[in-house]
Design a binder for these strands. Structure first.
Length: 401
DNA sequence: TTGAATGATTTGGC
DNA sequence: GCCAAATCATTCAA
């Protein structure tokens, strides 16, 4: 992990005895040793406490000589020698020169690797986790997203609140695990970084370790831990996706409408059999009464029309039932003040109009499609095509089309 | 387990 | 954007 940079001899002291061409580490120091020996007037190691330049050079030669022989000594001797070297008065000067050389050569080699842009995949993962309410402040984002998704697809059934709380609790679990793991990684990263920094500081007593080098090392560690975090984020995203598909897929979670809701819809359908196309306003009203969405009302009428048309005979009994029921309601309405919800039809104009009795079979039991509101060509009465400009609703003045 | 019922989605026309 | 028609996917009763 820690690399001793080759000292190439491009430093400021090149040509003055500190040229370290071609060999990393101690080989470089060997060159220093040789060079200094050449320039130390045949230098005699061991001379100390001198005041002129010659003796200074002898000092350097002495230090280098001691460094070169330190590995040949026993551990105790080496420790003692190391201590002596650290206390040597020339040590700081030599050390700073080595640092300077290393800094220059190291920077030129590594500049290209730095300041790399943020990983776009990580950005996407972060955004997604934020949107799902897993990352960032807990504000019910996931649950809100769940509700929004379910509503937009028309899948909000009356008993969906239980499922949402289940979804919410599962999402909360994922969130909790994610944050615990993230915290663990961050803690491990901090601990490891501190450890490495301490090691480097310790090593800096015996080899040149620049602050820049420490910074770079910290950056490398952070990058490594960041890649682990990316994996964690990816797994979390997958878990959220699975959760979403399990809880929020409208098809998967289809629920039959309540009996009362079906009754309301059927009542409207059979009382408007000649033209079973509720206006936007009527759909909204029906949706309100049934506790479903407008799009669900549209779906229901779409399905009902097509299924009714395909098999009128099958729906005959149902049609009669609702026709009689509504007629009865209308008659009661004549006798007493009309109660909008008495038949489940709310404020609709279920006036026992002609539509109503189109569904009642003739006495002889025969039933024509015309009487059922369907023309021979398969179109509904008053509705030649979906794009007809006039309102298809015989008893509803509005037409949102 | 099976088949009918039913709500949702897709496709194509207008 | 709404609708018809076909289809899918799930629920539910036998």
């Amino acid at each position: 992990m820690l690399q001793q940079q080759p000292l190439t001899g491009n430093g400021p002291s090149n040509g003055r005895g500190l040229g370290m061409s071609g060999h990393p580490g101690m080989h470089g120091l060997n060159s220093v040793h040789e060079a200094s020996q050449h320039r130390s007037d045949g230098g005699n190691p061991g001379l100390e406490g001198t005041e002129n330049g010659h003796e200074t050079r002898r000092d350097i030669g002495d230090i280098l000589q001691q460094i070169m022989t330190i590995t040949d000594q026993s551990l105790d001797e080496a420790q003692a020698k190391k201590h002596a070297l650290n206390c040597h008065r020339m040590k700081p000067a030599l050390f700073s020169v080595l640092c300077e050389i290393k800094e220059k050569t190291g920077l030129s080699m590594r500049n290209a690797q730095e300041d790399e842009p943020q990983d776009p995949q990580l950005v996407r993962l972060d955004n997604m986790l934020l949107a799902e309410g897993v990352a960032g402040p807990e504000k019910g984002g996931g649950a809100a997203a769940a509700v929004s998704a379910a509503t937009s697809s028309g899948g909000m059934s009356p008993d969906s609140s239980l499922e949402h709380s289940d979804y919410k609790s599962k999402l909360s679990q994922i969130r909790s695990i994610y944050h615990t793991e993230l915290e663990k990684y961050e803690q491990a990263c901090t601990e490891f970084t501190t450890h490495v920094m301490n090691l480097l500081r310790e090593q800096s007593r015996t080899r040149p370790v620049t602050p820049r080098e420490i910074e770079r090392m910290v950056a490398i560690i952070h990058r490594k831990f960041s890649s682990i975090q990316t994996q964690l984020k990816q797994s979390t995203c997958e878990a959220v996706m699975i959760l979403r598909s399990r809880f929020l897929d409208a098809r998967r979670k289809r629920r039959n409408f309540s009996k009362q809701a079906t009754e309301v819809l059927n009542e409207y359908f059979y009382s408007h059999l000649s033209n079973p196309y509720p206006s936007e306003e009527a759909k909204e009203e029906l949706a309100k009464q049934c506790g479903i969405t407008v799009s669900q009302v549209s779906n229901w009428f779409g399905n009902k029309r097509i299924r009714y048309k395909k098999n009128i005979g099958k729906f005959q009994e149902e049609a009669n039932l609702y026709a009689m029921k509504t007629a009865l309601g209308a008659r009661q309405g004549d006798d007493s003040p009309h109660t909008p919800n008495s038949t489940g039809s709310g404020s609709f104009s279920l006036s026992g109009s002609a539509d109503l009795f189109l569904g009642v079979p003739p006495v002889n039991g025969e039933q024509s499609t015309y009487q059922m509101g369907l023309q021979a060509n398969g179109n509904w009465q008053g509705r030649n095509s979906p794009r007809s400009g006039n309102s298809p609703h015989s008893d509803q003045s509005d037409n949102s089309d």
